[in-house]
């Protein structure tokens, strides 16, 4: 187990290295620079700024410089937010992003598994049709449409919830963003859960269990649930990635002080270090999540062993 973990962690290093390298050169291919503005800076000022941020050196030197700082855990200064370093900005955005991200994942899991199971157990009845059509809506309505709709209904018309803002993570402020973030994932999980549970229920060993005279309740909870959850667990990796990218939009709309907003602003402003830092951070998060998924998978399926 320890060896497995260690090996996987070591394997993450080349992945992240490739990510940094790719991202470093990709952001540089985007035309325009961090200090461009309609009100152009005087050339002497631009020179100074380029020198200060090592932008005047050849690209490969800048790359080595960046890697060197990275090894020391320094993601560099932000070009745009001149009073802060990238480390500080990510640290500032981390709690909010993690909070809404993990709440959305939990909600999606709970709701998706529950409704998917209901649909599977009532196949081709109204419960099934309701869950499936709702989940279709959840998948097809993008979050940048869903968010304003919910705001209009719950904040402006009904006045039950705030229209946005963070307010020190007050539950009322968290509700709408978490729901918007969780909806599409809930829908995917519900559909997957339905298919998977239906398949398990029609397999031979379940028939055997029923023939033994076991109650439906016991069959589902003891025999069917565990194998039916396997595809859901393997889906968690992509879900984490989707929640992260979804949070970029949701953070913008609800004014949540997370990392995603910096990602957008950073890209628009050619804030190279900020974009790189966040890309790296996202990458590390997804790698970590896939590792957790693998561990969970092994726990669920006795055929899978750490090797």
């Amino acid at each position: 187990m320890t060896r497995f973990l260690l090996r996987r962690l070591l394997a993450a290093i080349p992945t992240l290295f490739a990510l940094v390298t790719l991202a470093f050169f990709l952001v540089r291919f985007a035309p325009g620079g961090p200090f461009d503005d309609e009100r152009a800076l005087p050339p002497e000022i631009e020179e100074r700024l380029n020198a200060r941020y090592h932008l005047d050196a050849p690209l490969w030197q800048q790359y080595l410089h960046y890697l060197g700082n990275l090894l020391r855990g320094d993601l560099g200064p932000s070009f745009q937010y001149r009073d802060y370093s990238v480390n500080e900005l990510i640290a500032a955005g981390l709690p909010a992003s993690m909070l809404i991200g993990s709440l959305a994942m939990l909600l999606a899991l709970a709701l998706g598994i529950a409704t998917g199971s209901i649909a599977a157990l009532n196949r081709h009845r109204w419960q099934d049709h309701l869950v499936m059509s709702l989940s279709m809506t959840g998948i097809s309505v993008p979050n940048y449409v869903m968010a304003p709709l919910l705001v209009l209904l719950f904040a402006v018309t009904l006045d039950w919830l705030p229209a946005g803002g963070w307010n020190d993570a007050a539950p009322a402020n968290l509700l709408l963003p978490v729901i918007v973030l969780a909806l599409p994932q809930t829908a995917y999980i519900a559909r997957m859960m339905r298919a998977s549970l239906a398949e398990v229920l029609s397999s031979d060993y379940i028939r055997t269990a029923r023939a033994k005279g076991l109650g439906m309740r016991a069959i589902i909870l003891r025999h069917a649930m565990k194998p039916a959850l396997q595809p859901i667990v393997s889906w968690l990796g992509p879900t984490a990635a989707a929640v992260l990218t979804g949070s970029v939009v949701v953070e913008q709309i609800f004014g949540i002080p997370g990392v995603g907003r910096f990602f957008v602003q950073g890209a628009l402003n050619r804030d190279y270090t900020l974009v790189l830092g966040i890309a790296l951070f996202y990458g590390a998060l997804i790698v970590a999540f896939n590792l957790i998924v693998d561990l969970l998978y092994a726990a669920l399926d006795p055929r899978v062993r750490y090797r």
Binding site: V151, A155, V156, D159, P162, A163, G164, G255
Partner: peptide, 10 residues
């Protein structure tokens, strides 16, 4: 979002 927050009195 800014417009909605104004309308919601925030």
């Amino acid at each position: 979002a800014e417009f909605n927050r104004f309308r919601a009195g925030e």
